[in-house]
Amino acid sequence: MAAEASTGMNERVIRVRLKRQDGPDARPRWESFDVPVGTGSNVTSVLQWICAHPVTVEGKNTTPPVYDSGCLEEVCGSCTMVVNGRVRQACSALIDHYCPKDGDELTLEPMTKFPVVRDLSVDRSRLFSNLERMRAWVPVDGTYDLGAGPEETPEAQQTRYVLSTCMSCGCCLEACPQYTLETDEEAWDRAFVGAAVISQARYFNMHETGSSLKKVRLTELSGPGGVSDCGNAQNCVNVCPKEIPLTESIAAIGRQVTAHNIRQFFSGD
């Protein structure tokens, strides 16, 4: 865990400004650290180094900063934070890109659309709660042997595969003007669900067995906080680290919701 912050090439020292907050209700404050880096350093290795050497540029001993991290290869979705003003995964944020020269500055802040737990760590349970609300699963008949699943063309598989790489990191939600911070759980059912969850609804609606819950999903997404709350800013698709075609998903669900509403109007079911 206490990795060297660099691999030994292009050694230099950068200034890291870190937004800190001791708890959900504490006032945020800033601390700065001088960190030795080199080729191969990334934001996570910088944070690891600061944890092992928690002394500010003023020479003051401080607590090791709290942050989320997991796989460090951009598949687990843990380490989302705001790096120099833009939301992304910390592990794939290479220091050579942000701070090529000695003395360059790096600013790290927590996401703003989720409640801060401490320092850079935020509480994203709303995202998982919305996946549950969206019935984001295939309703199989248990785990006993019932043969293979439905056949699928390679084209359909490729479309579903990309959607299935969503790691619930929250980048698309942080960047979305319509997605708002909601600290009160009561508001989660009414506030905009955001691109990630809409895209998951599309993913499960595409699956033969998964589509048996399509109506329930579309009912959820046609109400308050549903797909019509999207303001079409298209920020989501620009920040998605997995390059998921989120705006295509929103458009697809928009069409499904419209058809669903018309059907409901005429059939009442």
Binding site: V140, L146, G147, A148, E152, P154, Y161, T209
Partner: peptide, 22 residues
């Protein structure tokens, strides 16, 4: 083989051949 079938039923997007087989 039965585990693969089960995961397939759960919706895992296994790569497919041109014919649609896993």
């Amino acid at each position: 083989p039965r585990i693969i079938d089960l995961l397939d039923r759960m919706g895992v997007p296994f790569n497919r051949t041109a014919e649609g087989q896993r």
